[in-house]
Design a protein around this nucleic acid. Structure first.
Lengths: 353, 353
DNA sequence: CATTGATATGAATCCTACG
DNA sequence: ACGTAGGATTCATATCAAT
């Protein structure tokens, strides 16, 4: 399977040619089912060129359902067991997509709202200005594992956990691809900022990102930027030409964020290791933060309060009357009458490795 | 049909007892069918009490679909031709609802995102914090008219057109209904601010609002507040008791916003009316803002430029080479060498009525 | 009474490595 | 594959106690 390439042709046909369980992430921006009839005019009277490309006409809901069932079925097949899929749509088609995906056994992890601070206004005052699109993020099935770079996303969000509503401007300015005559190449080019969140949150370095509706290749450009591989599927030759030129100009970035370094988990440390390293004594007395004596170190990485021999976590939970608690942060030793948390001893030990 | 009442019993059965085309607005907050397993612990180690109610249990997605098809079918039947329906859900169920509604022929006007500034965080760091719910707003069918108080919503949004993403906090504090022991009465009580937007945007004074999943009656409380009628359907007796007490304490507000006064449209004025009132002369010469002579008043509320006899709007568009333009603001007459717009003449005429 | 800090809680498909 | 146990994980707001 060739990587970092655009395959030209019918989406479903090409999907069928890809091997089982070969893809880490799929991003799909399928044609919308926009049932606009007649011309939509700006208040000033100029024609508004919305979505009117040939590929956007489908005869009926059912026809659209069949089409989506076909490509989504193939997507599920080519996805690795640990892979996941993002699909983006608007109210015209997103309920078709979500319903079909659930029926196929995809397991929804999140639906994410792309909220646009600068949407196209509703010219006629006939409804609320449609200022968002919806993404559905699914694991291959209910029990499959998936990549989620939680800490990376938290770091990128001012150290608060990232939420399901993303404020991102629509694709305009230099980022928007134009042809020689200044006309936009693609009617629904997605902003790279959107794809950055998608790819950084749900892939690892070197992963393969498949986009069955490649268009002008935003997903490919962002994949390359962050050191992921991409495979695009697209019928339209002029889109492919634009995408190739665009992707060739991308510079790869290498940093803690794109490399997933923020996700690395420190090695596990046991109480007996700390004891062997001289950081804990045999039968070490353990206190809570108020200097109340709670328990003493026992063998087998456990502690005892005279009644029970438990892990530090279970012991902390017992004394808090809770179901669970982190013992590393709950317990302290006393040295020269000052408290030192087990957690800080653990950090010290890790640093010494 | 009795108004401002809560009907106790099975949702579908009671819906079937309501007459055809009798309801102006439906607000439906059905069970979400959250498929949770086991218990979820907070970071602090305590149990999180989410939705564990019996009413949210279904055997399977298929059973859930059947249930929704049943109540949505009845909703469509009882809705007036000019009525509309709001449905709220989360990713667990909203795609089922939207799909079924489209299949039933409901016509989606908007999907609206209720974005929560204060959602329950994701305790385990396993996905994006789910910080929104989705509302689907539908007309009865593709060609039916519906009420949308555009100007009211614009006024309430700092004079900018209201969008499809609403930032509203979850229902907490004094607004949240509690029982004698301080426990929340309903696990999913909606904030009144949400219902205020729903009802103010899509109903008129005196309209009938039906809520097939009344719960503790947020929709009824807001309907009463703004001078609308309500009909609630609810099985749970303790919810009904709370709702009744709550609604009895509501004070009705009467103002330009709730009465829809902002929506009133000025009467149409024709060119011949202006002529009869003496504001325009026969064969009045019309100029653009640069004092270029464009056309003269003809009969039948039209104007002629020597070639075509058109409405003022089509004539303005012709001279601007556009598809459409507002002629009232484009054309002027000259009086004592100063320009007077047709629009100002129209305002003058309206004032004289 | 004002301010500060601790605690409670809200529609949730909420762990994972190791044996 | 499955069970077990280690141990990592939270944001905004309301309320109430303490200063």
């Amino acid at each position: 399977m060739q990587l970092d390439t655009i395959l030209q042709g019918d989406c479903v046909k090409i999907l069928k040619s890809l091997p089982d369980k070969s893809i880490d992430l799929i991003f799909a921006d399928p044609p919308y089912f926009m049932q606009t009839e007649g011309e939509l005019l700006r208040v000033s009277g100029e024609k508004f060129s919305g979505v009117s490309d040939k590929w956007d006409k489908f005869e009926s809901l059912k026809h659209y359902d069949e089409f989506c069932k076909a490509w989504l079925t193939e997507c599920q097949r080519v996805l690795k067991d640990c892979g996941s899929i993002w699909v983006i749509g608007s109210f015209q088609n997103i309920f078709r997509l979500g319903y079909i995906m659930q029926d196929l056994g995809f397991w929804i992890i999140n639906d994410v709202i792309w909220a646009k601070p600068n949407p196209v206004p509703n010219f006629k005052g006939t409804r609320f200005c449609n200022a968002h699109e919806t993404l559905i993020w699914c694991a291959k099935n209910k029990n499959s594992k998936y990549t989620f770079n939680y800490k990376t996303m938290k770091f990128l969000n001012n150290d608060k956990q990232e939420r399901s509503v993303w404020n991102i401007g629509i694709c305009i300015g230099n980022e928007r691809l134009k042809d020689e005559s200044g006309k936009k190449v693609h009617s629904t080019q997605k902003p790279e900022a959107l794809l950055e969140k998608v790819i950084l949150s749900s892939t690892k370095t070197g992963d393969i990102v498949l986009d069955p509706f490649f268009g002008t290749g935003t997903s490919g450009a962002v994949a390359k930027k962050f050191g992921r591989h991409f495979i695009g599927i697209e019928q339209n030759e002029s889109y492919i030409k634009s995408a190739k030129r665009r992707i060739s100009q991308i510079n790869v970035v290498q940093n803690d964020i794109s490399n997933g370094n923020l996700e690395s988990k420190p090695p596990r440390v046991s109480l007996s290791e700390l004891q062997r390293a001289g950081l804990l004594e045999s039968k070490q007395k353990l206190y809570d933060k108020h200097k109340n004596f709670i328990c003493t170190l026992a063998d087998n990485d456990k502690v005892t309060d005279g009644q029970d021999e438990l892990s530090i976590h279970k012991m902390a939970a017992k004394h808090l009357n809770k179901s669970n608690h982190n013992g590393w942060s709950y317990f302290f030793i006393q040295k020269d009458k000052t408290l030192i948390s087990l957690d800080s001893l653990r950090y010290k030990y890790r640093d010494s490795l």
